[in-house]
Design a protein around this nucleic acid. Structure first.
Length: 364
DNA sequence: CTGAGAGATTCCAGACTTGC
DNA sequence: GCAAGTCTGGAATCTCTCAG
């Protein structure tokens, strides 16, 4: 590829480089989102949440006694998807990708029962809309599917999240259908009328927008007394206890969640706050404490990266943690090792940061 | 000093390629 | 024809560099 870039005259239609890219794009074309699908800023404790509230007040120049309404929902752990409806018809579905461009997987998403192929957005004058959500596998379905795979002698899935994201990207939509994924919708990112006027402000609050989606037949976080998946707060200090409560009961919930999401409820305020390059200023994730385990550090290997960077990598005695087996973890650099005083043969405490990336917390 | 962007990390699943 | 290996994409986050 480098050679072809330097000498374009050598690039021929039957070059191996052309085959690879064209084959892949034929399978899942890359498409641009109507508005970027950003990730969320993280918080871990009450102080972080108070900072968040204060940042918003400073940014908007609000008085201290101004009451900001917050909407709190579980943070679902699956694969993010963006769905476009035009004139009430489901026309395109895509993965999140890098936030700006994702893979178009419409045929696969059409097999999910919780994605209506027709939804009456026109009831509110909406001609074109992009909604965001999570394709996720219920924990009991994951167990059932793995049991069946075991009987059939197939390799088992490591956890519901991987089974779900894998299912989204199969070439065969029938395979996607068999994963019995749910689509849980938690955001409207774009909504315009026939003339292209922005209708988002007319929806009023985030919570009202989600209620509207529920009326249209989408699965959304439910807002009621008995089952507070979606709860409104008027004081940031009350939110931590609520999150703690969810953390204590996360195992009883049918879906895997890795935290809670706190959003400014008023859409007009959301618009005034806007976003940085990677996250909106009006929302933050409260991350649950990562599950931890201890294991033994066997040896350290030095890896050479693409750019020649040398990274020390710890090889561990394999240990089960949050659904996967951890056997190696990056030590980043010499300072990291010195600061934590990590030594060969140590028993170390490891966790999966964000329930994904292995991380050495400290030697025991 | 802060923030953004680039690059590096692990692990898993699926599709494709290669080897026997 | 099957098994093993490679590549891609997705998820999160840490470190470093550079611009303002």
């Amino acid at each position: 590829q480098e050679l072809e870039a330097a000498f374009p005259e050598l690039k021929t239609p039957d070059s191996p480089t052309q085959r690879v890219s064209s084959d892949l794009t034929e399978d899942f074309p890359t498409v641009e989102h109507l508005t970027p699908m950003l990730s969320l800023d993280n918080s871990y404790n009450e102080a972080d949440l108070v900072d968040f509230d204060q940042r918003i007040r400073n940014y908007l120049d609000l008085p201290e006694d101004y009451i900001i309404e917050y909407c709190v929902e579980p943070k679902y752990d699956g694969g993010s998807i963006g769905l476009i409806y035009e004139n009430d018809l489901f026309v395109r579905g895509a993965t999140r990708g890098d936030g700006y461009r994702g893979e178009e997987i419409t045929p696969n998403l059409r097999t999910l029962h919780s994605i209506p192929l027709r939804a009456a957005f026109s009831r509110r004058g909406i001609a074109k809309v992009e909604i965001r959500g999570e394709a996720i596998m219920r924990k009991d379905i994951f167990e059932k599917i793995n049991k069946a795979r075991e009987e059939d002698g197939l390799p088992l899935f490591a956890n519901p999240r991987n089974a779900a994201t894998g299912g989204l990207r199969t070439k065969d939509p029938n395979e996607t259908a068999e994963r019995k994924l749910d689509a849980i919708i938690y955001h409207i990112g774009y909504a315009v009328d026939q003339q292209g006027n922005n209708l988002l402000p007319k929806l009023g609050t985030h919570s009202a927008a989600i209620d509207f989606l529920n009326e249209l037949g989408f699965i959304v976080p439910i807002h009621n007394e008995n089952f507070p998946e979606r709860t409104i707060f008027h004081n940031i200090n009350d939110i931590v206890d609520h999150c703690q409560e969810w953390q204590d009961h996360r195992d009883d919930y049918p879906y895997e969640i890795d935290g809670m999401v706190i959003k400014v409820n008023d859409i007009a305020l959301q618009n005034r706050l806007g976003s940085t390059a990677h996250h909106p200023r009006w929302a933050i994730a409260f991350k649950f404490k990562a599950k931890q385990a201890t294991t033994k550090l066997i040896k350290v290997e030095f890896q050479v990266g693409k750019t020649g960077v040398i990274t020390p990598v710890a090889k561990l005695e394999p240990v089960q943690l949050a659904g996967v087996t951890i056997s190696s973890v990056s030590l980043h650099n010499e300072d990291f090792i010195r600061n934590k005083d990590i030594r060969l043969g140590d028993t170390v405490l490891v966790e999966r940061a964000g329930d994904v990336i292995p991380y050495i917390v400290k030697p025991m």
